[in-house]
């Protein structure tokens, strides 16, 4: 009986260890749950949209110059 119990204990502790290794991978869950990842997403989206608007403006400027040259 004692042997059986000890074997069961070993197996159980092993499964606990496995469970811990699976959960111990550090992710930014805290950041996400407190909502602050949205700040980063907001900042990055702003930068991206800004750059794209800048690129569209350059595109239009080149189109204007092309039109003037063709005249």
């Amino acid at each position: 009986m004692k042997q059986l119990l000890s074997i069961a204990y070993c197996l159980l502790s092993a499964s606990i260890v496995f469970a811990q290794t699976a959960n111990s991978i550090e992710m930014a869950d805290q950041l996400r749950s407190s909502g602050k990842i949205y700040v980063v997403v907001g900042v990055l989206t702003t930068i991206l949209v800004g750059l794209i608007i800048f690129l569209i403006m350059i595109d239009r400027k080149v189109s204007d110059i092309e039109k003037k040259i063709n005249k």
Binding site: A22, M27, V41, T45, L48, V49, I52
Partner: peptide, 28 residues
């Protein structure tokens, strides 16, 4: 160009918010 803008904005937003596999070393 519109497709490019939409895909990039989607990438930045979804890229940070979707659930990714939890892997050692790599993390986020």
């Amino acid at each position: 160009k519109i497709l490019c803008v939409l895909f990039l904005i989607y990438t930045v937003i979804a890229g940070f918010l979707i659930d990714v596999p939890h892997l050692p070393i790599l993390h986020e």
